[in-house]
Each structure stands twice: as C-alpha cells, then as structure tokens.
Design a protein around this nucleic acid. Sequence first.
DNA 1: ATTTTTTTCTCGACAGTCGAGAAATTTAGT
DNA 2: ACTAAATTTCTCGACTGTCGAGAAAAAAAT
Lengths: 413, 413
Amino acid sequence: MLAKSSTELVRQKNSVLVLTALRRHGPLAHTELSDFTKLSSATISVITTDLERAQIIEKAEQQAASGRGRPRVLFSQRRDCGYLIVVIISSDAVQYSLVDYAGRLIDRFTEDRQQTVPNVASFVRGLRDALNRIVVRSRLSRDKVVMISISSKGLVESSEPVLRWSPIFGREQIDFAAVLRGEWSAKVILGNETLLVAAAVGRQEENKKGRDFRALAALSLGHSIGLGVVRRGNEGRLEISAPNFGHMLHMPGGGLCRCGSRGCIEAYAGFYAILRTAFDVPLDTIPAKFVPVAELDKIATSARQGNRRNIHAFRQAGLALGNGLSRVLSLHESMPIAITGPGTRYYDLLLEGISEGLAESHVVRMEGMPELRVMADEPTLVFEGHLNRALAMMDDDIVRSGVAISELNEQTV
Amino acid sequence: MLAKSSTELVRQKNSVLVLTALRRHGPLAHTELSDFTKLSSATISVITTDLERAQIIEKAEQQAASGRGRPRVLFSQRRDCGYLIVVIISSDAVQYSLVDYAGRLIDRFTEDRQQTVPNVASFVRGLRDALNRIVVRSRLSRDKVVMISISSKGLVESSEPVLRWSPIFGREQIDFAAVLRGEWSAKVILGNETLLVAAAVGRQEENKKGRDFRALAALSLGHSIGLGVVRRGNEGRLEISAPNFGHMLHMPGGGLCRCGSRGCIEAYAGFYAILRTAFDVPLDTIPAKFVPVAELDKIATSARQGNRRNIHAFRQAGLALGNGLSRVLSLHESMPIAITGPGTRYYDLLLEGISEGLAESHVVRMEGMPELRVMADEPTLVFEGHLNRALAMMDDDIVRSGVAISELNEQTV
DNA sequence: ATTTTTTTCTCGACAGTCGAGAAATTTAGT
DNA sequence: ACTAAATTTCTCGACTGTCGAGAAAAAAAT
C-alpha cells in the first residue's frame, strides 16, 4: 500500500523540482523557473521566497541588464548550504574530493594505498584521517558536510552503505555507516563504480534525447569487469542498478576467478585473465593480484602484429563479455552499451569476440545488434555520476528538513 | 524531469488509495477506510461521496448491526462500473473470462485452438469472435468493457500490447491494440504469462510479510520456460518484469531451440529438450512442436527407477535452469524462487541439477542458496495475476476519468 | 426515558496552486 | 527630459485539498 498524499507533500515535490531545475541549468530567473517546472509564476514566487528564507538559495548579484524591461534576478544555490565529500576507491589509490552544494570542486587530494596486504582496519584508519584532513584544510565545520558519497568496484548492498565484496578486500565487508557513525553526522552512501558511470552516461543521454531515452548499459573493462544499467522507470525517472556482472557465471566449472568461484566472466575478460590465456597458464592458477598495463600492452601489440595465441586471448575475453551481455539484454531489454575503463584501449582486439558472443542469442536475433560505443574517460564519468546522485539526494533531504527550519524561523521571528 | 504536483493530483492519489483498500480488503466502512489509508475521517467523507456520485462505489445493504453504537455502512465497488475481459492464450487453447469491477467472475469459456498450423489471421478472427460472444452472452454493452487483459507465453513489448515472439506464432508479431482498435474502446494490455504468476505470488508474499518482502522470482516449467521477477521499487510499490529467460543463452553453440537460436535455456530444460536428451537425439534436431505429458511421464518414471540416461536428461535440464537462475540472481539480487507449471511434477528429478547449477556462482557463495518452493496451481496464479494487474490499472484509470465525470454532473445538475 | 457507545458527518482552519492583473524597472523613441 | 513600450516580478482572490474537533446520528445498555 502506498503512502497517502497531502498538500505539504506537493510543496515538497515542487520545491525539489525547482532545485533540480537550478542544478541542471545553472542560475535561473523567476520566469525561467516557471518555464522549466511548468509551475505558475505565483507558485514560483512562494517557493523561492521559502527556499531563500531557509538559506537554501539566494538571489545572485545583479547582472548587466540584457534587454529592455525589468531586469531578471537570478536565483542560485547557496554554495555553503551543505557540503559533499566524494571518496573514490580504486585498486591503487583513494581520491577524496570536497564539493559544495552547487557542485563546485573545492579541494581534492589522492592517497596512494600502500601496495602491501590490504588491511581493512588500516584502510578505515586512513579513511578517517583523510576525511578529517579535507575539512580541516578547507576550514570547514564537520557538520556542514551533509553527505559522503563513496564508490568502489565490487558488490554493494542496495539499501545500506555496506561493501559486501570487493576485489581489494575480498569478503571482508565494510559497513561505512557504522565506521563513520559518531564522528560524522553526514549521510553516507555507497555505490558501485560502474553504477555511477551508468548514472553519468544516462544523464548525458537524457539531456540529448529527452524522453526518448529508454535504457543504457555501461561496461567497464579493466583488471575487473563492471556493469551498470540505467533505465527509465515506470514513474518517468531514471533508475540505476549495478548487477554483479563481473562475477556472473560465464562457463560452468571454468577458470578460477579472484573471487574464489570458477567460471566468472571476469575470469575470462579481466586483465589477469587475458594474461593467463595469453601465456597459456592453466585456468585454475590463482589469479595475479595486479597486472601492469604495460604487460597487457605488450600482448596487445603482439596480437596486432598477428600473434595467434594473443589474438586468441583477447578473443576469448570478448566472447565472455559478449555472452554475458547477451544474457543481460535477455533479462532486461535490448539497449546501447557504453564501454569504458582502461580496457577500451584493446577494443579493436576485443570487438570480434564481443560481437560473436552477442550474435548467438535470441535477443540479438530479434532486436539486432545493440549499439556499442567507447567512452574513454572513465574517472571523469565516475565523478560526474557521484555528483548527479549525491547532489540530487541532497536536494531531496534539504527540502525535507529545510522547510521545517523555515517554519521554525517564522515562529521565532 | 518529473512532472509537477498539484492538489488535484493529491486527490487522485488518495482516491486510488481508497479504491485499493476496498479491493484488497473487501467492503469497508468509513472508519476502516480511514484506518487503512491513514487519511482523516473528514477526507474519507469527501472522497467517498465523490466516488459515490461518480458511480464508482456504493453503500452496501444495511447489514445486521453487530455491536452497539451507530451501525457501520459499508462501501463497496459498483460491480457494473466497468468490466474486464481476461484472455489467456496457451499452447492448446484460449480461455476467455468476463469479470466485473469487483473482480467477480461472470462468464468463462475456453476455445480449443485447432492443432493445425498456427495462423495469425485465423487466430485473430477467433479472438474477435470470442470477445464478441462473451459480451453478447452476458447481454453487456460493448463499451462497458473498459479493459482487455491478454497473456501469452513469449516475448512481450514492455510499453505496448505487442507480442514480439511466441512459441505459438514464432516471429509473427501480433499488435493487439491495432487488432482491436475501432471495434473496442477498451484499453488493451498484454503480459507474459509468467510475469503474471510473479505478480500473483508477489502480492501473496506482500500480504504475508508486508514491507519485509523484497523480491521474488517465479519460474514456470513446461514445454517452454518462463520467468517473472517481482521486486519492491524505490517508491515502495511492487515492480514486475518478465525477462526473456527461456531464451537466455545457456550454452554457446548448444542445442537448437524452437526459437531458431542455439543454446537457449529452453533448448535444455523445455519438455521437448528433455525428451531429446533422453532419446539421445542429436542436439541440432528440429524440436518437436508438441510433447504429450504422458511421454515425459514415462521418461520420469523410468528415471525414478534408475535409468541412467533419463536421470541424465533431467539433470541436464536442471543444470541449465540452475545456471540460468544463478545469472538472474547475479543481475538482480538473491531472492526466493517459486516454481510453477506442469514441469513441477518432475521437481524431484530436476532438483539436483538446479542446485548444482546454482551452487557454482559467486552470488550463491555469497548469499547462500536461495529458497526454492514449488507452487503447483499455475493457471490459478495466472488468472490472479491478471486480476491484480488489470483491476489496479482500472482503479487508476477510473479515478482519472471518473472525477472529471463527477465534475460534469455537478455542473449540469 | 436516559445514558453510553460507536460511527458518520460537518465546520472552520490551514496549506497549496493558479490566473489575472498590478507594480517595478529598464530601454527606445521623441 | 519625458513618455511609451517591454519585460519581469509580485500580490490578491478564487479554488481545491487535508485535518482536527466536535456535532449529529443511531443503536445497545441501564
């Protein structure tokens, strides 16, 4: 049973609508807000004064009047309304970014993770230190940070910020909410890295195609394999999900994967797997923890020069990806696939296998080959995805609590 | 961008809330409605008088007063508010049911499909005739039928009532909206059969567990293989989807499937496939159009008596299902699996393969073996699913149009 | 007959949106 | 310098919606 509706909820939703318009199109005037949101001018007036009183938005500096008539006054978010820390955990480093409410980057640094044995306890210590450092450096009060958005490769709990499995820490779970509770009042969210890529690319597509955009999958190729899916939900908004694609079964009883299972897609298409095939190492060999890209580059150039075995290695990887993708398309619907990650530099070598792996299935025979496109700059997409997700969530949260604050103000004034 | 909210929308949503409560819990009094919907008594008054004036609900006959105090008056749907025709297309017959707005079955008959070559044109003719007949027999006006809900096995377009592929008509598509346009003003919806099973089981689970219910998959075993998934969406309501599971890739380059592809799950786990394996027919043999259940029963009993080859046939089928399910769980999340359809009678023989096929994957190693349960009576579940889906949709549509009608009444009176 | 109990209905207060037009403020024209 | 035109923002009254409190209704208990 759904929750009841009320007039207050209407206001909340429409306030979020205003904030979203502001977020997507930058500073906007009263009239433009009315245009974008389809709300009447009168309503915009009420909402903006409310949000202004609640210190969420502000009237921008008077800009040079451009035409005749009363000059527009632009509304924009108050940057100091709340801050976001983005934490991007990758295999060799952790990047910390401090972002204000308007989405502007304030501070950023990267901590190399020590290449030694991964240790959850020491990692958590490093995380705490770094979070501390970033607010101190910017002379920010701890409680002005209202959200901490973390991403990692691996398997993430959907409802809580718990990392269930990751290529770095394996089955050692990390509950980020528990780790940061007490010290931080901020809301902590966690997302699979490729999920955020999908979110970013999906947003781009929606900006381009509008309501025509239906669905898209983002495939990240690297030491591990990730997939994110973004689809238009039945309510009209975009829904993102991160299937555990890298560890979906490719071949029963097949090659040994880093996760300890056998026959995962990653065990055929991950960098270590390509290396393994290229050197004809037995498939049950324990995977390498880390493969320098240079190593793979060598195999690739030799493959491009005609080396049979190396061509085969990339082909096998492509097949695993293609078969897996065909299964994803069977389970959802046919959709374009955006390929990112360091593995895109071998796209020429993978393509044949991917195509063949896709071609066999019923979906592809029915719907035709899905569009494949390469999007090189993965880190940027990940960061964009963080911002899209976290800031939209902040808008929501702030409206919910911010309106209450404005009411308090009214009463005390 | 989401659509704006307004006070009128609030009323619409709350009206649907009232109708939904009525649908789930039968005739209810003012007080009970208030309890279920959490709306205030005053609001219930306004909404019920509105719905009553719009001829959507009515006050029930005065029932014997049960306690002291003013006696309750029960509201219930007006049965004649609109009618629904349910069309269930199965491999050997088509069942037509006429249902009133309260969900009560009024008339039902079954047309055997001629066992000859399936012909879309003649099928459509039969459909038109039968739909005609069912309203004439009940002396009902055509335009009192506001919805026609059709189900079939196969692949269904998600947004329009178009059958993309079916085991019966193959790649000959049927656009039911186009076929019935002109003759019928009713809204036409189409759903995959197993999707409706999932909807029905999901509803049952939600009634039992409430908000604790997260997700469930329904697996239908028979001549073809179907899967429906029901999950709680991010807005709190249940979302159902029907993956093209039967024709998901099981084994690259594997057995020939009825769909013309190779290596589909169905080509290993469908009845014809089990037969094929049992008789050691080459895997590229063109599948039998139809397999009498008696035939499979024979193989099963012989397997139960120890026949190696037949045991192997069921085991192979189980493995295909288990592997496929493991992939589904990788792509969504771990969830219980309800197994229905005629194939459940061989559950004992399939179980080992299913378990083994599931066990290998990363998800199952992480989350443990998903709960498997057998639900025998598939046809009932399919019909229940039809009612759940179609009547809920009717509530929505009727409120949208019905309130407009009541406004017209007000103005003309 | 009166009281108690339970349910339904009604009234006034409050929150929200909208359309229309008033007010504000700048540019263009003379 | 003044006025007219243009454009944007603000304000007011009408309408719709929900809610809490208490009145009204109707049956059982005393």
